[in-house]
Nucleic acid binder design. Structure first.
Lengths: 254, 254
DNA sequence: AAGTGGTCTAGACCACTAT
DNA sequence: TAGTGGTCTAGACCACTTT
């Protein structure tokens, strides 16, 4: 397996008894051939009809395999021309917040600490962000998220306050945050916009996160919308980038 | 179209004459129904067999539509149970570097300025990162990327130096950067690891990027590997987060 | 046993590209 | 005209869940 196989015509077979479905196996075989250099960037893969014959699968199965490779950024297809190996490029690089979410799934180690929750009057900025009148009441919340007893994320948020829905103090803690992170189905938000920025810890945030003032940190700003497409929550998370790693890979990995 | 349709049984039909394929149309219809609240988070969608009948398409077409919705984070499927509407959660949030890449595609507005390129001896850190001996020669490069004449990204990189491949001065400029960003097939890298961090501009970087010293910025650190899986390049990009926006959306839009 | 999603077949037709 | 990818059919069988 470690030796390079530069002859793509000598191909492995699909194991029909394997648990892994045929399309995934085929995708894996092709990805391996690309990774080994059997097909270089820019080169054309065998036609789908050829792959059907070589691996004894139906066109739909080949199609699914190729689509997988497209999703993985390994190849691209041009109708009427063929399937070509893609070179590495930045467009396909993406970072996701899986680690962020994983943190919250671990309910033993992760605790949400409430710093503040009160109803205040919206200032101009809040009013603009969640599309209400200045002076209208909003719920202002500040939370600290602890992992293993150490503070790792600071969060502050201004939420639309609906007087028709009286709020029990205990409910606040569950609102939004746990629903968003737990991966369960408790969220009442339909969609959101997020923006990632660099920032510098002010004195208060530094103190809360037990960092030095003026340390660099990441700021994840959010606006969430309800099912009527009304913006209902604006706020941001602040966390040290060395604690919440945002790493990813690109290209073809084993 | 603006009125909510809370009865999912009164459904739109697939337009077979449309350019948009049937599976995409079906996915769009279902997504719209979820967005309108006809199916709430946690609720079960009609079975695939039912969808086949309702929309008069084959099982494979329904399957593709459902798979699309899964990719978009709208639903999730549980074998033997059904297809369920997903609630918003952070796990599916991802940021990509499309804007980063777009910048480089625009070759009229974007210029790469070379600050420095010379062959130096690897120090301990570089040696560790690209897996060579301390003291071995590496190509050290510093670049500034201008957009519309204004500096927006600073880049520095240490590359493996292969004495067997003599380097023409002019080639350096094309190396890696243009291949990576242009989206063409010029890259000679097979894969890479990237990490996004917050940082603070030091005096030099601030000066080059025409910012104030100690301004916050994003640092995108990278290691790239060649087709033999050897690490060949280590370095980082530094850019102001307000110039290179890293924004994204989550949930169900339109 | 019945219902659900997951995979797969062996063709078909279409749109696009090259020659 | 021949070859390519893109879509789609009308079933089949399987694994899993619920009743």
């Amino acid at each position: 397996m470690s030796a390079l196989n530069r002859n793509p015509d000598v191909h492995k077979k699909i194991d029909r008894s394997a648990y892994e479905p045929a399309y995934a196996q085929l995708a894996g075989i092709l990805r391996e051939q690309v990774a080994s250099g059997a097909y270089q960037p820019g080169q054309k893969l065998p036609s789908e009809a050829t792959l059907c014959r070589n691996y004894d699968v139906s066109p739909m199965t080949v199609r699914r395999a190729v689509n997988l490779l497209i999703d993985q950024g390994v190849v691209r297809t041009i109708q009427g021309k063929g399937t070509f190996v893609k070179a590495l490029n930045f467009g396909s690089i993406s970072f996701n917040l899986r680690h962020f979410q994983d943190l919250f799934k671990d309910k033993k180690r992760t605790k949400i600490r409430f710093l503040e929750a009160r109803i205040i009057r919206a200032d101009a900025q809040v009013a603009r962000k969640i599309d209400i009148q200045v002076g209208q009441r909003v719920i202002f919340m500040r939370r600290l998220i602890d992992s293993d007893g150490e503070p790792v994320i600071y969060h502050q948020e201004s939420m639309l306050y609906d007087p028709k829905l009286p709020i029990v103090e205990g409910e606040l803690e569950l609102t939004s945050l746990h629903g968003l992170f737990s991966g369960g189905n408790e969220s009442s938000f339909k969609k959101g916009k997020l923006e990632l920025k660099a920032t510098i810890l002010d004195r208060e945030a530094a103190h809360l996160l037990k960092c030095a003032e003026a340390d660099p940190a990441l700021k994840l700003e959010h606006i969430f919308y309800d099912f009527k497409d009304r913006p209902v929550s604006w706020g941001w998370f602040i966390f040290r980038s060395d604690l919440q790693e945002l790493s990813t890979t690109v290209g073809i990995w084993g």
